[in-house]
Each structure stands twice: as C-alpha cells, then as structure tokens.
C-alpha cells in the first residue's frame, strides 16, 4: 500500500500547547512541509518570537533561536550576515512585529535583508490574555478595549504589507489567510515563494497570514474563520503586494489578487 500523505519530517511529534482552533498549528505544519519539500532542513535557522509562538522551537526540528520581544529581524540579520548561505526565517506575531518590533522590521526590509518573515496576524495579544494589538480591528473588543477599539483613543489598525510595499528593499510581500482549505493552500504557496525569494538571494520577503484566535475573539473556531473572511479581510485585503518575479509593486497599498 502506498502512503499518500504523512506528517512532514521537520515537524516534531509532540502534544501542541496551542488552544483549540488556533491558527499557529496550521502555519507550523505548512512551514515544516515547505522545509521538507525544498530540502533545506539541514541549513535552515528559525527565530521564535515572544508571544503565543514563543515555543515554536518545540515543533520544528531545525536549529532555532529564541528572540526578545520584537527583535527577531535584528537577530536574523546577525545570523544571516554570519551564514549568508543558510536559510533564515523569523516567525512573529502582530504585537511582536507591528508594535514593539516595528523599527526592526521596517529597517530589515529597507536593507533588503535576505531573510523570510512569517507574520501571523490574529489582531490580538494571545499570550497575555487578549489585549489590543496594533492590528486589532476598529470596534473590536479586547481586554484593554472593553468597549471596542475607538480610533480617537487607540488609533487605527496598521497594515504591514501596504506599509512595507513602499520600501525598495522589500522583494516579496503577500497577505493570505488560514480561513479555508483554499486559503491554506494559497498560504503555503506564498510561504514557499518567500523561501524561494531568499534561496535565490532576491532580498526581503514577508508573508502576512490572517490567523484565527477563537479563545480571545470569544468565538467558536468556526465563527472565527467566518470572522476572518467577513471582517478581517475588509481591513486587511488578501493578495500580493510586491513580487520581484512579476514586478508587482503597489506602493499605494492596492493588493493584486493572485
């Protein structure tokens, strides 16, 4: 009998610490599949952030480095400059990347640092019990915006892909989602493209993945997928914002549907 499907080798078989319905597990698996498929397990170095995915190194059988909150792009820079032929990626959440680590991500992109960034956007701080994130939607309730995000008090959500698309150093920028099987497979394609960008030394790549957090969105897992499709994509449109292969560049922030 032929095995048609099995767990990727890079994925460590261990019980998950993520909550039911969380998107991190899917993203980890996609990452592991890509590392297997590209045959880069022995030369890949990953960076785990501070946030729910702080323990990402428990799931991926590769060299990994834990990073201080927001600093994965700086650490990845230091690693990549020592080992330019290794594959270096960061895995960051919205608080890590778009709040405390905003300077590091912008400057890594502007330097065309040849690294791949996986940016999990779930519009909330999960690890610290559901506070406002820089990507929290307007009117979205969090533990620190109990009446909903009011732009007069807490400002507006930050669109990272659109922001970074203005930088010449960014080579591949895409936003995908984990809300349906089709979206999951598009996410995998985008992630693969990000690694390809790096392997071919084309510069900085970032894939923003809209990911569910049913526990702190206070929804069922199914409702949370619907929330991504109906609400999150309104603020964060899916698509490719920059692609070195197709000279797609949308500095104004318009996504191109793939």
């Amino acid at each position: 009998m032929q095995a048609l499907y099995s767990a990727p080798e890079t994925l460590i078989r261990t019980p998950s610490h993520y909550c039911p319905g969380c998107g991190h597990g899917i993203a980890h698996r996609l990452l592991a599949e890509i590392i297997d498929e590209l045959g880069i397990r022995g030369k890949t170095i990953g960076l785990a952030p501070v946030g729910c995915s702080v323990l990402a190194y428990n799931y991926l059988d590769i060299d990994m480095c834990e990073a201080a909150h927001g600093r994965p792009p700086a650490i990845a820079t230091g690693i990549k400059r020592v080992h330019p032929d290794n594959i270096v990626f960061t895995y960051q959440g919205d608080g890590d990347l778009a709040a405390i680590g905003m300077a590091e991500i912008v400057h890594a992109a502007s330097r065309a640092e040849n690294i791949t960034v996986i940016f999990i956007n779930n519009a909330i701080y999960g690890m610290t019990n559901g506070q406002l994130a820089p990507t929290t939607l307007l009117n979205q309730r969090t533990t620190t915006t109990p009446e909903g995000r009011d732009p007069l008090t807490h400002g507006y959500p930050i669109r990272i892909c659109e922001l970074l698309a203005t930088l010449e150093g960014a080579s591949f920028l895409a936003r995908t989602s984990l809300s349906s099987p089709k979206d999951v497979s598009q996410t995998k394609e985008a992630l693969k493209k990000g690694f390809k960008t790096q392997i071919e030394k084309k510069g900085f790549s970032l894939i923003e993945v809209l990911s569910p957090c049913p526990v702190y969105w206070r929804m069922s897992p199914v409702e949370s997928l619907k929330f991504i499709e109906e609400k999150m994509t309104q603020t964060f449109p899916l698509g490719v914002f920059k692609d070195w292969e197709k000279t797609v560049s949308a500095p104004g922030g318009q996504a191109t549907k793939v």
Partner: peptide, 9 residues
Amino acid sequence: YMAYGGAAA
C-alpha cells in the same frame, strides 16, 4: 540584537 544573532551563529 544583531550582535546577539552573530554570536548565536
């Protein structure tokens, strides 16, 4: 942190 990355490498 860049130095940290270089040291880790």
